[in-house]
Simulated scan of single mutants.
Amino acid sequence: MKTLFAAYRVTDLDRSLTFYTALGYVELGRVDTEGGSHLVLLKFPGEPAASLELVHRPVDARVDVGSGFDHLAIQVDTLATTLERLADAGLEPGPVQQPGGPHGPKTSWLTDPDGYRIELVEWPPGHPEGITAADFA
C-alpha cells in the first residue's frame, strides 16, 4: 500500500488553483460531478502521479479547516529560491526556521486561501528524500 494524495475542500476553486499553481503544482486532470462539484488533481512537474486533490462543492458552506487537519509538508530543493519565487508570485511565506537546530532542516510556513497550512522543507545536505526511520534512530 501507499498514500495516493491528500484532498482539500476549497471554497473558491479559481482562487485555490491560482495559489497552488503559484506554489508550483500543475493540473493533472479534473472531474466534474453531479451537482456542480469539481475535483481537480494536481502534481508537481517532477512527480509521476497526483499528490493533491482540490475538492470544490459550491452547494456546501465555506470550508472550515478547524476539523483536525494540521498541515501539508512539501519538500523543496532550495528554500531561499522557493521563498523568493513565491513572494514574486504574490504569496506570503513566513520566515525561515530551523526547528532541528543549525544542522537540521530549514522550514517556512505558508497558508492557502482557505486557511490550510503548508510547511516547506529543505533537508540538510546528504539527507535522504522524505522522513525515514533513520530520522528516529
Rank of each mutant, 00 (worst) to 15 (best):
W109V: 14
E129R: 13
L4I: 13
A133R: 14
T33C: 05
L120Q: 12
L41R: 09
G29F: 04
S51W: 05
S67H: 00
P93H: 02
E119P: 06
E47S: 13
R85P: 07
D114K: 01
P105G: 08
L79E: 03
V65W: 03
E84Q: 15
D32E: 14
G36E: 12
H38A: 13
A49H: 13
G94Y: 13
G130V: 02
L54E: 03
L52Q: 08
D70P: 08
Y8E: 00
L39Q: 05
E92W: 04
V63P: 02
T21K: 15
L72Q: 12
P48K: 12
I74H: 09
F5L: 09
G46Q: 14
F136S: 07
V65M: 01
F5D: 07
Y25V: 13
Q98C: 08
F44S: 00
P45D: 00
D14F: 03
V121A: 01
V76A: 04
H56W: 00
E119R: 06
F69S: 14
M1F: 15
E47L: 07
A87D: 11
G35L: 05
H103D: 14
P48I: 04
V76S: 01
D60T: 04
P128T: 07
K43R: 11
D88G: 13
T11Q: 03
L28K: 12
A137H: 03
A89Y: 09
V121Y: 00
H103P: 00
G104F: 06
T132R: 09
E122D: 05
H56R: 02
D77H: 15
R117T: 12
P125W: 12
T82G: 12
P102N: 04
V40R: 05
G66T: 12
Q97W: 10
L83M: 10
T132F: 00
R30N: 10
G24L: 11
D70H: 14
A50F: 03
R15L: 03
T21W: 02
S37P: 05
Y25R: 14
E122G: 04
G100Q: 15
R9H: 00
S108E: 14
A49K: 11
V63T: 11
W123C: 08
L72T: 12
F5C: 07
P113Y: 01
G130S: 06
T82C: 14
P113E: 01
G126W: 01
Y25L: 15
L86G: 08
I118T: 15
P95V: 10
S108G: 13
K2A: 13
A80G: 11
Y116D: 01
L79K: 06
L110G: 07
A133V: 11
T33K: 11
A6R: 10
Y116V: 02
A22T: 01
F69C: 10
K43Y: 00
R117E: 13
D14N: 15
A134D: 12
R9G: 01
D14L: 09
L52S: 05
A49M: 08
T132K: 05
A50I: 02
G46T: 10
Y20C: 01
T21F: 05
G36K: 12
T82M: 13
L72E: 01
T21C: 06
G36Y: 07
H103V: 06
V26Y: 02
V55N: 07
P58R: 08
Q97G: 15
Y116H: 04
L54P: 02
V31C: 03
